[in-house]
Amino acid sequence: METPIPDAPPNAEQIEYWNGAVGLRWLTYNDWLDERTAAYGRAAFAAAAPRPGEAVLDIGCGAGATTFELARAVGRDGSATGIDISAPLLGRARERAAALGLAVEFLEADASRPPFAPQRFDLLFSRFGVMFFDDPVAAFAELRKTLKPGGRIAFACWQEPRLNDWYELPLTAIAHLVERAPVDTRQPGPFAFSDPGYTREVLTAAGFAQIELAPFATPFYLGRGATREAMADDAMEQVFRVGPVARLLEARGEELNAAARDAIRAALLQLADDDGLEVGGAIWVVTARAG
């Protein structure tokens, strides 16, 4: 009789993904990412409206940039905790917290199984950190339990791919070279909550109420530099470091990769101007209350 193979733990694939080579690559360009996504985080932060004395949980905190802002907002009488599954990113977060002199707790754990006592937090916050749950209803239901009565959640998530050129432009540029798979917006990934109807369904099923989705759009500066060529080079670094293009071309031959690089760089050069290489970026700012 064969020994049954145990089921993989929840979010096992994401945990492996963010603690392997990809997590290390994200670590190397974390400052770049924080700078490019800061405006979207500020929009969610404004909706969250953290107040002095509150206890806040930052979900998918990464290297801690948003956790530090939350800590400053809640002050010494409050508390800010960051949770993430990526050990490399949390290591950077702890280093930065020590350098800043901020009393912030960082916890390596799966936010879909939050290891906190019930009713610990006033606010749950996330900048692009809640779209990777295997079972989003179960995850949000568990997170809701950590909220105090009347507690709230606020997070930023990307709108559909066609409104986000940072994602679409490189893929469109190589469409004549390689076919891409369609985006499944109900699977873990950057666009998991791009459908507002689905997002409402998930949060309602998880026990949240007063659910609102506010659109927010602002340019995403994919590349910066002193010249158009330098801007394109900066953008190319990001495009091929992480994201859909890197994954799509990973197992392709050298010739196809070279052709893809030429096509993407040409598309990027067309967009570069004196202000930088600006592309479209659009998010939902989602807010809700514990039901």
Rank of each mutant, 00 (worst) to 15 (best):
T3F: 11
I5M: 09
W26V: 13
L213H: 13
V130N: 11
A49K: 00
D34R: 03
R162Q: 14
G223E: 10
A205P: 00
W18R: 03
G189R: 03
G82W: 00
I174S: 12
E278D: 02
E254I: 08
A230E: 14
L147R: 01
G78I: 03
R241A: 15
A93D: 08
T287Q: 02
P10D: 07
D84L: 08
F216A: 09
A246Y: 06
P10H: 07
R76T: 14
Q238E: 06
F155S: 03
L256I: 08
A272H: 11
P161I: 03
A205V: 09
R96D: 07
A46V: 14
W26P: 01
R261D: 04
G53Q: 09
E95R: 15
E250C: 06
D262A: 15
Q238D: 08
F208W: 09
L248G: 03
L147Q: 05
W18C: 06
A80S: 12
A267H: 07
P188K: 11
A251H: 15
S194W: 05
G207C: 11
F121C: 04
L169S: 08
R252Y: 13
V183R: 05
A175I: 03
A8K: 12
Q159N: 15
A138P: 07
A232E: 10
Q187W: 12
E13M: 06
W18M: 03
R162K: 15
R265V: 00
A259W: 14
T37P: 01
R72P: 00
E212R: 15
G20P: 00
A138C: 05
N164F: 01
V74M: 01
T146D: 03
G129A: 05
G223P: 07
E212P: 11
P118F: 01
G225A: 11
N11W: 09
G189V: 00
A97E: 10
R92I: 03
F216L: 04
V22M: 15
A12Q: 08
L222V: 06
V285E: 04
Y17L: 14
Y198H: 13
L27F: 06
A87W: 05
R94E: 13
L89P: 02
A21Y: 06
T66N: 14
A258I: 01
D134Q: 13
D58G: 07
I211S: 09
G280K: 11
G91I: 02
T218N: 15
R144M: 12
R289D: 10
Q119H: 08
A39K: 14
C61E: 09
A111N: 03
D34S: 05
D7S: 14
G101V: 02
R51L: 08
K148C: 03
T185P: 02
P182K: 14
T28Y: 03
P182E: 14
N30H: 10
A141D: 02
D273R: 11
F128E: 02
Q14A: 14
F116L: 09
F193P: 02
K145Q: 13
D275A: 15
L90R: 09
A175H: 02
L90G: 08
R180P: 01
A260P: 07
A260M: 07
D110N: 14
F132C: 01
L147M: 04
P114H: 04
D134R: 07
V130S: 12
L24P: 00
L277V: 05
V239T: 13
R247P: 00
R36D: 00
V22P: 12
D273Q: 09
R25E: 15
